[in-house]
């Protein structure tokens, strides 16, 4: 596929990473960072240090929880669309279409403002033991982000389940495996392996969706940066630092997924 002569030359040149122009670029970048550190205002940093750490922790926590829950939902959603009977496939497809067809911000506000304003009208909800939780913002954030991730990833899993070679499943049946064992040992692992590269991309997209929860008063790292801006009227410094933090988290995610992909043997039937 990529046996294209001029671009092969490019990639050969790329193997030599540290070229003269790169050293110049790195020097310029270092100078920019240094001047930013010296000439911009960072005196607010010690005051908000603890809050920022809490914000980073909360961002990562929301990301981890919603990705885990979302993936657990995505597996049945994908399976229902790939192999389910129509009364399972159709609702799953409708769910994916609706969630993927509307903005996440709107879903978040629909849950938080919409359901949040409906719930108090029912006395039995207000008297239930869940009420102290439902009055907070984070459950709505977790639910909205989970559903969003499940819908996008469900679509990916549909393709992954459908793409597992038929012969593999037939061989499993010939071995006399029960349907559940077949699913657990053959179908799911191969589908996940197929979905893994997309999974990394979707997880980065999910990280990029987390700052939306700040709009419903959840204090993540984005909300901390906004608060610094409002308190001190310093605009650029918190935003630049915020961008850097997201860059680092994205880098860690991409690196982690690459390690995970390398761990799984890629020779498949």
């Amino acid at each position: 596929m990529s046996a294209t002569t001029p671009f092969a030359a490019v990639s050969a040149a790329r193997s030599e990473w540290l070229q003269p122009h790169r050293i110049v670029l790195i020097a310029i970048a270092a100078a920019l960072v240094l001047s930013a550190a010296i000439f911009m205002r960072w005196d607010w940093l010690p005051k908000y240090y603890d809050l920022a750490l809490l914000g980073i922790w909360r961002t990562i926590w929301i990301l981890a929880v919603t990705v885990t829950l979302g993936f657990m939902l995505a597996v049945p959603l994908g399976l229902a669309q790939a192999a389910g009977p129509f009364w399972l496939a159709w609702p799953a497809k409708a769910f994916c279409t609706v969630i993927r067809g509307t903005p996440l911000l709107l879903q978040l506000w629909l849950l938080y403002y919409g359901l949040g304003s409906l719930f108090p009208q029912y006395p039995w909800i207000r008297q239930s033991e869940l009420w102290p939780i439902l009055r907070q913002a984070w459950p709505y954030a977790v639910v909205a982000l989970t559903l969003s991730y499940a819908a996008y990833e469900g679509e990916v899993m549909r393709g992954a389940f459908a793409g597992v070679p038929r012969g593999q499943l037939e061989a499993a049946r010939a071995f006399g495996m029960s349907p559940w064992k077949r699913f657990r040992r053959i179908w799911l692992p191969q589908a996940i392996h197929r979905a893994l590269p997309t999974l990394a991309g979707e997880t980065v997209l999910q990280l990029k969706a987390t700052p939306l929860v700040a709009t419903i008063t959840v204090i993540d790292i984005y909300a901390v940066a906004s608060r610094v801006r409002q308190d001190t009227f310093i605009v650029y410094e918190p935003l630049l630092l915020l961008a850097l933090i997201y860059l680092i988290i994205t880098g860690i995610l991409v690196f982690g997924f690459r390690k995970l992909e390398a761990k799984i043997p890629s020779r498949l039937g």
């Binding site: 980065v204 650029y236 915020l242 997201y246 860059l247 994205t250």
Partner: peptide, 15 residues
Amino acid sequence: RAVPELVLILLLYYA
């Protein structure tokens, strides 16, 4: 592609 759109929007909007 690594920084959230929301942050970019604020950054580019103000800057």
